[in-house]
Amino acid sequence: MNRRSLVDALIVLAVVALFAVPLLLDGGTSEYGGTDATVTQELEADGYTPWFDSLFSPAGEVESGLFALQAAIGGGALGYVLGRLRGRRLAQDAGTAAP
């Protein structure tokens, strides 16, 4: 493994640790509710009533599926672009290396 891949791997590891360590230390005591939802609950508890409802609200598991779809579209597109850029560089490298 060269130095470059090692640094990349360490960065990935740091990102994973950043989110895994709090989860492990927590020991299952926290709910991990979303901050957006926390605010709406506080406002509703203070007596605010939203005056407009979402046109379409996905129920239960459909919502998590649609979130996964959003991540999949983004991840897929990002992978496609990075793959194409890498392929382009490799082709150029091969082109300049050839006699």
Binding site: F19, L23, D26, S30, Y32, G34, A71, I73, A77
Partner: peptide, 16 residues
């Protein structure tokens, strides 16, 4: 698109 779809846990016991 990817990053804003992923809810992550934080030290505060909430996620965002």
């Amino acid at each position: 698109f990817v990053l804003s779809a992923i809810k992550l846990p934080s030290v505060t016991g909430s996620s965002s």
